[in-house]
Amino acid sequence: MDPKNGSSFTSLILLGFSDQPQLERVLFVVLLIFYLLTLLGNTTIIALSLLDPHLQTPMYFFLSNLSFLDLCYTTSTVPQLLVHLRGPDKSISFGGCVAQLFIALGLGGTECILLGVMAFDRYAAICRPLHYTVIMHPRLCVLMASASWFIGFANSSLQTVLIFLVPLCGRNKIDHFFCDVAPLLKLACVDTTVNESELFFVGVIILLIPMALITFSYGRIVRVVLRIKSIAGQRKVFGTCGSHLTVVSLFYGTAIYAYLLPSNNHSQNQGKFISLFYTIITPMTNPFIYTLRNKDVTSAMKNVLYGGCDSR
């Protein structure tokens, strides 16, 4: 079969879970509930951060950025997946596939960097409390958040162009539920070793550099916390940092499994369920992890709902 450039296709087929029709019905109900919870939780975080003056701090500025990012990330894949789970038509236009890959890669890369920035914010708050307002100046916060988005989408632009320059052998069926890197490369009719090596190298940079920053930040935080003689003080710090570490573990664990481990280490179905985890489960749980036992957010919610009748 003659090689064809991807642009010669008018549409692509996302096979998703079509080989398991009974699973599709269950997934539709579960994912619809999870998606609605994702919208509710992340929208609440953003609204509270904007409406309550007590939450207009660097920590909640970055958290609202993360919530907006999670909203966009989930919305880029899940609504279409729900449509595909309910009907026989599994097609996606070629332009839609390009856009979906670009957005998913961009938001995923942005989240990697943003989680590192949030760890630095916690380091500054706990290890440099007297200089915190100077270090985390509003202008620097905006700059770091903007840099996270810029780097994430600059990398996504490069990767999307490189992937869709690979010639396809007339095949238009993607064994996945959204347009992701690995399933698209499997459609190629040429050796993709160079592409895979380049993607692995970039993945290591995007994932491991923020992880190094997170490790450094929390290493210093632990040293400071161990010097705190008050048990209540230790619990307060660990409670604040524990939420972020839980989110980091969920996101990085699944991302490393999906993008850095060799694909022959896991089956295609395992890859799909791992992708479901970081496209819907993690964005849904993030708001609840951050707000669980968070008195600031609970108090802000009461103030917004009851018109500020509850004092702090």
Rank of each mutant, 00 (worst) to 15 (best):
P3W: 05
N5M: 13
L14D: 00
L15G: 04
G16L: 10
G16S: 12
G16D: 06
F17C: 03
S18N: 10
D19W: 06
Q22V: 13
Q22I: 11
F28S: 01
V29I: 13
L31Y: 08
Y35E: 04
L40T: 14
I45H: 00
I46E: 04
P53A: 07
Y60M: 12
F61M: 03
F62L: 12
S64G: 02
S67G: 03
C72I: 10
Y73S: 03
T74V: 08
S76P: 04
V78Q: 08
P79I: 05
L81W: 02
L82G: 02
L82W: 07
R86Y: 05
P88V: 01
G95F: 00
G95V: 05
G96T: 15
V98T: 09
A99E: 04
F102A: 03
A104K: 05
L105E: 03
C112Y: 03
V117P: 00
V117Y: 04
V117Q: 05
M118E: 01
F120W: 09
D121N: 12
D121A: 06
R122V: 14
A124I: 15
A124G: 06
A125Y: 10
C127M: 09
R128Q: 15
H131S: 08
H131W: 10
I135W: 15
I135A: 06
P138G: 10
L140T: 07
L140K: 13
V142F: 14
L143R: 10
S146D: 06
S148T: 05
S148H: 06
W149T: 02
F150G: 04
F153I: 04
F153W: 15
N155S: 07
S156R: 03
S156G: 05
S157H: 14
Q159P: 00
F164K: 08
V166Y: 06
P167N: 07
L168I: 08
C169E: 12
G170A: 09
G170F: 05
N172T: 06
I174P: 02
H176N: 12
V181E: 10
A182H: 01
P183E: 02
P183W: 01
L184K: 02
K186D: 07
T193W: 08
E196S: 12
E196L: 12
L199P: 01
F201V: 07
V202C: 06
V204Q: 14
I205Q: 08
I205P: 02
I209Q: 07
A212L: 14
A212Y: 09
Y218P: 04
R223C: 11
L226Y: 12
K229I: 07
S230T: 13
S230W: 10
I231S: 14
Q234M: 13
F238W: 13
F238S: 11
G239E: 12
H244P: 08
T246I: 13
V247K: 00
S249Y: 03
L250N: 04
F251M: 00
Y252A: 07
Y252I: 10
T254I: 13
A255N: 05
I256N: 04
L261C: 06
L261W: 11
P262C: 14
S263N: 13
N264E: 14
H266D: 06
S267R: 07
Q268R: 05
N269V: 09
N269Q: 14
N269A: 11
L276F: 15
L276C: 12
T282N: 03
F288D: 07
Y290G: 01
T291K: 09
V297T: 13
K302Q: 08
N303A: 09
Y306N: 12
G307A: 14
G308Q: 07
G308K: 09
S311C: 09
R312H: 15
